[in-house]
Design a protein around this nucleic acid. Structure first.
Length: 417
RNA sequence: GCGAAGUUAGUUCAGUAGGUAGAGCACUAGUUUGUGGCACUAGGGGUCGCGGGUUCGAGCCCCGCACUUCGCCCCA
């Protein structure tokens, strides 16, 4: 037996309806916010991700599926969505027509990681980007959209963690303060954090190591280093969330793993997941367009892990088994009536109903059982009498009533039922 | 990349003094020879993850590999 590649999963006929449910909600909610869809290629030049996500990040360092094509070009299976959207927006000059772009995406992404529950090598994300506005109301809109989506698919029990990283000036200043502090406590830190201290000190704040937590507890907070602009930006976002009735927890330790974030960063968490408790997250990225060769376009966005949404729906038992049903199940008493059954089936479909018949040449009784399994509204019965009189018997499966009609009138019946 | 636990029928799981496999549900058919859902009866299904080894004999013991899960790491 050939197995699927490690960390990949089939979406099978018996649970594809859950995916469709979520996809439909994504369309619904994005429509409410007037976001339109972007579909970018599944792979990009490696450069796209290196320049955007950041060379120092784990994603770029060790998790990308990078390969050379036959022309010797380095390509990478996309590990996240934002970089490609920005590349596409720059390439197609999407901002030259106006100064704002609201867009969303849904698709597969790839990271070479140790698979775990809620963490796959091919996984799916739904994400939104609000491109072109430097203002806090854009941050608020994105968070409202994400919140709306979670609620609409039935996830209410989540936590929204929010923080600000400030602008460039703030980040630079805070970075120094933090490095100094960490240096003073170097001996108390975990090996990992000691290593990360120089390259990416902010990530130390995110550590789960008990030793680190002690140090982090008393570390200087970025909130205390904010300049007036950054402070106002953050406060406006919070005020807007308040007025929209969205609850949040200010989490000074929240940093996030991609280098391109500034100002507002946020993350949705759920207790229903294991150690992969992050449902999704995002933040503002003001410098990304320039990093990818475009004109400045301050933006904000988020992404949700679809597999994780599904895990929560499972855990909450919220997955409505949208029992698929068929309008008509055609039942014939003998295989010699197959052509007649085929004609009836065809007429019903032509009239816009869904209609199927048995392909196993099963017994009459078994065909009824099969009709039940398909949750058929009507059984369309064909036997000796019906053939002889050019009729069909139609049985209402829920009320157990039946009528006999001429096959000539079947289309007519179908359009009225 | 590191540590730990798992893998037996479609599925959920049983299965010790090592003697080549079992249950529930699901599936198929009958009881009811043109009328379903319930019930009863019967039946089909398994190279016991893969490959080696020990043994007269391995689902069970040993080794390797693959995959899954739980931590770490990281993130969605």
């Amino acid at each position: 037996m050939i197995q699927a590649v490690r960390g990949t999963k089939d979406i099978l006929p018996n649970n594809s309806h859950v995916w469709q449910f979520i996809e439909n909600k994504c369309r619904e909610v994005t429509t409410q916010f007037a976001y339109s869809e972007t579909r970018t290629p599944i792979f990009e030049k490696t450069e796209v991700f290196k320049r955007s996500i950041g060379d120092e990040t784990d994603i770029v360092n060790k998790e990308m599926y990078t390969f050379e094509d036959k022309g010797g070009e380095s390509l990478t299976l996309r590990p996240e969505g934002t970089a490609a959207i920005v590349r596409a927006a720059v390439q197609n000059a999407l901002l030259s027509q106006g100064n704002l772009l609201r867009t969303w995406y849904f698709g597969s992404f790839f990271r070479y990681e140790r698979p775990q529950k809620g963490r796959l090598r091919e996984f799916h994300q739904f994400g939104c980007e609000c491109i072109g506005s430097p203002n806090p109301e854009a941050d608020a809109e994105i968070i409202m959209l994400a919140t709306r989506l979670l609620k609409s698919i039935g996830i209410i029990d989540f936590k929204l963690m929010i923080n600000t990283l400030g602008d460039e000036e703030v980040r630079g200043k805070y970075r120094e303060i933090l490095i100094n502090y960490l240096h003073e406590h170097q001996s108390e830190l975990s090996e990992d954090s000691q290593r990360r201290m120089e390259g990416n000190p902010l990530r130390v704040l995110d550590s789960k190591d008990e030793r680190d937590k002690q140090v982090i507890e008393n570390a200087p907070q970025i909130l205390d280093s904010l300049n007036e602009t950054s402070k106002q930006h953050f406060e406006t976002v919070l005020t807007m969330l308040d007025s929209a009735g969205i609850k949040y927890v200010i989490t000074p330790r929240l940093v996030r793993g991609l280098d391109y974030y500034c100002h507002t960063v946020f993350e949705f968490q759920s207790d229903a997941l294991g150690s992969q408790d992050s449902l999704g997250g995002g933040g503002r990225y003001n410098g990304l367009f320039e990093a990818l060769g475009g004109k400045p376009a301050p933006s904000v966005g988020f992404a949700m892990g679809v597999e994780r949404l599904i895990l929560i729906l499972d855990a909450l038992d919220k997955v409505k088994e949208l029992k698929s049903s068929v309008d008509c199940y055609i039942i014939y008493s003998d295989p010699k009536y197959l052509a007649y059954a085929c004609r009836a089936t065809s007429i019903l479909r032509e009239a816009g109903l869904s209609a199927i018949c048995d392909l196993h040449r099963r017994s009459f009784k078994s065909q009824f059982k099969e009709a039940n399994k398909y949750n058929a509204r009507y059984a369309v019965i064909i036997g000796d009498e019906e053939i002889e009189k050019k009729q069909v018997t139609i049985k209402n499966m829920t009320e157990s009533t039946q009528v006999v009609i001429e096959i000539e009138n079947l289309a007519n019946w179908a359009s009225n039922s």
